[in-house]
Computed example of a mutant assay.
Amino acid sequence: MHILIVEDEIKTAEYLRKGFSENGFVADVANKGEDGLHLALTGDYDLIILDVGLPERTGWSVISELRRNGKEMPVLFLTARDAVEDRIKGLELGADDYLIKPFVFSELLARVRTILRRGPLRQPDILTIDDLVLDLIRHKATRANKRLDLTPKEFALLSLLARRTGEVVSRTLIAEQIWDMNFDSDTNVVDVAVRRLRAKVDDPFEKKLIHTSRGVGYVLEER
C-alpha cells in the first residue's frame, strides 16, 4: 500500500513514515500543503494522512482541491484541531476519518487499515439505510420521507453511525469523534445521546435501525 503523509512537523512526519514503513507500507512525505497537493494529484496513493495547519495551503484547501479534481482516494485528518466543528468540517469536505493529536500510532494504524478494507472509493454525500436518508452536505435527515429535527451533535452522531453501517461503533470512538478525547467512561453521556437520537430516529417508527451491542457500543443497520 502506498500512502502520502502531509505533515509540517518534521519529527512527527518522520515518526509516521518510519512507523508505516515498518508495517509494510510505502510512505511519501510532504511538509507543505502545496507540495502535498501536487504529490496527491500526480501520484497514485491508496490513502492520504493530512494535517490541517500546513504552510502555503491548509489541509481544508488540499482536500477540497482533490475532490474538485475527482481524486477519491481516502483521506484521514491527523491534527491538533479538536473542536467538534472542525471534525464535522473535515468529514463534510470528504475525509474518511479524523484523529486528534496527540495520538497513539497503533490506533492510527488500525484506523488506516479499517479505511483501506472498505475499498478505494469514499462514501457518497447521501447515505441510505432502509427508509432513513442522510444528506451529509445539507445536514438533512429524513425517515419514511419525514424530516427529522436533529441538533448538530445528533446529526453528527447519526452520520458517524451511518458512515459505518453494519459496524459496531464503540462508545470510546463515539466520544472521541463527537465530544472530547479525554472522555470519562464512567459517565453516560454517549448512552444519553443515543437514547435521545433513538427517540427521533426509531421510536416513531415500527422498524428499529439503531441497535445496542452490549458492553461495546452501537450499530446502525437493517435487521
Rank of each mutant, 00 (worst) to 15 (best):
H2V: 00
I3K: 00
L4P: 09
D8V: 02
I10C: 04
I10T: 10
T12L: 02
T12Y: 00
T12M: 07
A13S: 06
A13Q: 03
E14F: 00
Y15G: 03
Y15W: 02
G19E: 06
G19R: 06
E22W: 02
G24Y: 06
F25W: 03
A27R: 00
A30H: 04
A30E: 04
K32M: 08
E34G: 11
D35V: 12
G36K: 00
G36I: 04
H38W: 15
G43K: 12
D44I: 08
Y45H: 02
Y45P: 07
I48W: 00
V52P: 09
P55R: 04
E56L: 10
R57F: 12
W60S: 07
S61P: 02
I63F: 02
S64M: 07
E65F: 14
L66V: 10
L66W: 08
R68F: 12
N69T: 01
G70D: 11
G70R: 05
K71H: 15
V75G: 05
V75N: 05
F77T: 01
L78E: 06
R81I: 08
D82M: 10
D86A: 09
R87F: 08
I88F: 08
I88E: 11
K89R: 15
K89N: 07
G90M: 06
G90K: 07
G94W: 13
A95N: 09
A95F: 05
Y98W: 03
K101F: 07
P102T: 14
S106A: 11
S106R: 11
L109A: 05
A110G: 12
R111I: 01
R111G: 07
T114S: 12
I115N: 07
L116Q: 07
L116G: 09
R117S: 10
G119P: 03
L121T: 06
P124T: 08
I126N: 01
T128I: 14
T128L: 05
I129N: 10
I129M: 05
I129H: 03
L136N: 14
I137N: 09
H139Y: 12
K140G: 06
R143A: 11
R147T: 13
D149L: 08
D149P: 05
L150Y: 12
L150F: 07
P152M: 04
K153D: 09
L157V: 14
L158P: 02
S159K: 11
L161I: 12
R163K: 13
T165R: 11
G166F: 08
V168G: 10
V168N: 15
V168E: 15
V169T: 13
R171Q: 06
D180Q: 13
M181D: 13
V190R: 02
V190I: 12
V192F: 12
A193K: 10
R195V: 00
R196M: 13
K200H: 02
V201K: 04
D202G: 03
D203P: 00
E206I: 12
E206N: 01
K208D: 11
I210G: 05
S213W: 01
R214E: 03
G215Y: 05
G217K: 03
Y218K: 07
L220N: 03
R223H: 14
